[in-house]
Each structure stands twice: as C-alpha cells, then as structure tokens.
Design a protein around this nucleic acid. Structure first.
Lengths: 211, 211
DNA sequence: ATATAAATACCGTACGGTCGGTATTTGTCA
DNA sequence: TGACAAATACCGACCGTACGGTATTTATAT
C-alpha cells in the first residue's frame, strides 16, 4: 500500500486516508491535541505527502470538516427515516434514527464538526465556518419536512421550521456534550426522547389521536 | 511586581489568578491550545509558581473545572430566578435567566466545563469527571423545583425531574455549540425559547390558563 | 528554624513546517 | 504507437521553536 498504482484510484488515496484519520483521531483527542505526525502515522503516509495535500494543519481542518459534511450528507440521504409518506412521521423517524445510531464508543457516534467548532471557533474562522456549513446544512435538510408537516396539520405557533430544525441540532450537539461529560451515551439518547415529546406536543399528537 | 511584598497582596493569590486566567483563555482557545506559558503571562506569575501550585497542566485543568463549579454555583445561587413563590415559575425564570445572560462575546458566556469535557473526555478522565460534576451538580439544583412543580400540578408523564433538569443542560450546551459554529449568540437564545415552550407544554400552560 | 511560595535558568522533546529530490501519471506530437 | 516533457504525488531528512516540566535558589510567614 506504499505507492498507489494509479494516479487517482478513487479520489486520491493518501488524501482520503488522511481525512479518515483526522475524522477518527480528532473526534477522540480534539484538533489541537492531534499532531500532524499522528495523522501521518495513522494514515500510513509521510509528512511530505501531508503537506503536499494540505498546505497546513489548518487547511486539513477545513478539509476534514468538508469531508464530514459530504460523507454525513450521503449517510443521512440514504437513511431509512425518509420512508414514511407523512412528513411529520419522517421528522419523528429522523429523531428515532438519531437515537438509534447512538451506540458504541463515544468517538464513534459523536460529531466531528461540533467538537471542532467548540474548540477552534475563535482561533480559526475558516475551520469554524466549514463546521458551521456542515451543521446548518444538515439542519436545512429537515426544514422541508417540518414545514410540510406544519402546513398539513394547520399548526400555527410562534416558531419556524428553520428554528425547529436548528433546535434538533442543538439537542443532538448538547447531548453529545453531556454524554462525554458523564461518560454515558444514554445521556444523549435521553434528550432525544424529550425532543420527540416536544415535537409531538407542537403537532398536538396525543395518545388518543396518534396513528 | 516582580516579587510580591506580601504573601497575599490583594489582587488574589497566584493560584486564583491562574485559575481565572485558565477560565478565560481555555474558553477562547481550548485546553490543549492553551500553553502553561500563556497562563503564566496572563496571570503575571512565573512558571515556578505555576508548577508549585499545580503539579501539572492536567492538575490545573481539574482545578479550573472545580473553580468553575464553585464560582458558578455561587453565581446561580445568588441569581434572581429563585424569587417566585411558585416552583414552576422559578423553573421558567431559570430558563429566562439563562437566556438573559447570553450577551457579549462568545467566550464570556459559554461554558468552560462543557468546552473542556468535549475536548478531553477521552484523554483525561480526571478533568472529564470534574467537568461532569460541575454540569450534573448544577443540573441537580433544578430538580427540586421541577419535582415540586410536577407534584403541585399533578402532572403525570413518562419523564422525571432529574431527566428534565439534565435536558435543560443539554439545550444550553448544545446552544453554545451552535452559537460558536454559527458565530451568533442568538442561536443559543433561540433554543432556550424552544425549551421554555416545551416546559410550558409539559405543565399544560396555555394562553388561557397562564397567570 | 522550618515550611511554604515564588523566581529563574534550564532541559529534552515533540511540534508544525520546509526542502531537495524521486517516482508516477498525463498530455502532446510525430 | 512511442518518445518525452510537464505536471502531479510522494518521500524523508532536517529546522527552529515552543512546549511541559525540573532544579536550584531566594523570599516570606509563623
């Protein structure tokens, strides 16, 4: 594996391996504590290759956030929560899906861009903005279903689909923080139960009129 | 100021000044990116004093989390949201208070222990646990009012006061993450509005039966 | 006198980044 | 098609510095 036989086998093998290494290591140790040498070792790539692909450690941070945005958006686009015909059902299925994928080690299910944003928001505006695009871009994918559900059911409240979509991300990100602080993934799942209950409240779903 | 003429001059001991410096600098740069020299410079203290007070940088991290727990618990104990006679009013006043204190620069209102926990949860169990004690200790201060409100109003739901108290912290912490990622404090306030609405829903507060 | 607090010079190393060079791929034109 | 130059990908030794931490000395309080 020392030398790729083709120029671009898929999308640049050293580059991709470095981005995957960044995803995994930064999620466990944080961005600042992750050394370029750590990434090179994990990706089985030399330092020369690193600085050939990314001009600086900060550039890698930006690329890692963009890589995260791309891979997660494919992951969520392919996820089963889009199946229900009713938009509100899809929204609730999203919440259930987010709860279901909280499993295993903390570093496996927590959010790279949330972690990075929290750490470097003041030091590196470029990384911060790339993280922001990932988070708010994902939130935006929920808006259409929320808005459709709202229209379908004639809900009038002093909140917007955009705001509720962002709120789901607040709860997901906050859940990760509590799960880390308490070293217990259940803390993140617990808040998603509250979110589920909140959404049902907003849409006047009670035991009686539930499907 | 090279050598303090008195043991504890007035400006606070070297230890306290270092803890205050840690609070401010770690909140902006994160723990790993904060150098011991940064702290010494900011606290106007030499490195010898630093390592006399704290055996290691990690020990300072633990002490900073404990310092945060102490100062915030005093701050919240003295805050005006305890005034209302009705426990539910106190809970809602707490949420309003959390919203009100989100002002100024991000580093001024965001949470030291949430930031540190997110960053070092895997690298330093000692700091992580100190952060956890701060967050969950604060959450616990809300439990009594939530439980009293629940009993007062005869609310029966599939949630506990403990869980709702933690959920408030999830939303606060998640709000900080989004505010940082979007570089906009309003994002944190926005989710507190949803929390307020959720709590009113849980306690069946509508426009009609509101005080 | 003793213990505590703090100053300062210093240490080894691990960090981000550079640089000169080599291998591989690709475009181009007989 | 083959030759060949240009561009791209990669290698690994090296550099200056900033890092966490130590050792020794000096000041202060009781």
């Amino acid at each position: 594996m020392s030398r790729p036989t083709k120029h671009s086998p898929e999308r640049g093998s050293a580059r991709t391996r470095l981005l995957e290494a960044a995803r995994d290591i930064v999620r466990t140790k944080g961005f600042a504590a992750t050394a370029v040498d750590d990434l090179c070792r994990s990706a089985d790539v030399t330092k020369g290759a690193f600085f050939h692909q990314f001009g600086s450690k900060e550039a890698l941070g930006v690329a890692a956030a963009e890589f995260w945005a791309e891979t997660t958006s494919v992951f969520f686009a392919d996820a089963p929560y889009h199946a229900p015909a009713d938009p509100l059902e899809r929204v609730l299925a999203y919440v259930a899906f987010r709860k279901a994928i909280i499993a295993g080690d903390l570093a496996e299910f927590t959010c790279l861009v949330g972690t990075m944003a929290q750490e470097i928001y003041a030091s590196s505006p470029d990384i911060r903005d790339a993280c922001g695009r990932s988070i708010f871009g994902h939130a935006a994918t929920l808006e259409a279903d929320i808005e459709a559900a709202r229209r379908d059911r004639g809900i009038i409240g002093d909140w917007t689909a955009e705001s509720l979509a962002r709120h789901t991300q607040t709860i997901i990100q906050g859940g990760f923080v509590l799960a880390k602080a308490g070293n217990d993934p259940e803390l993140a799942r617990e808040s998603l139960d509250h979110l589920d209950r909140y959404i049902r409240h907003l849409f006047h779903i009670t035991e009686e009129n539930a499907a």
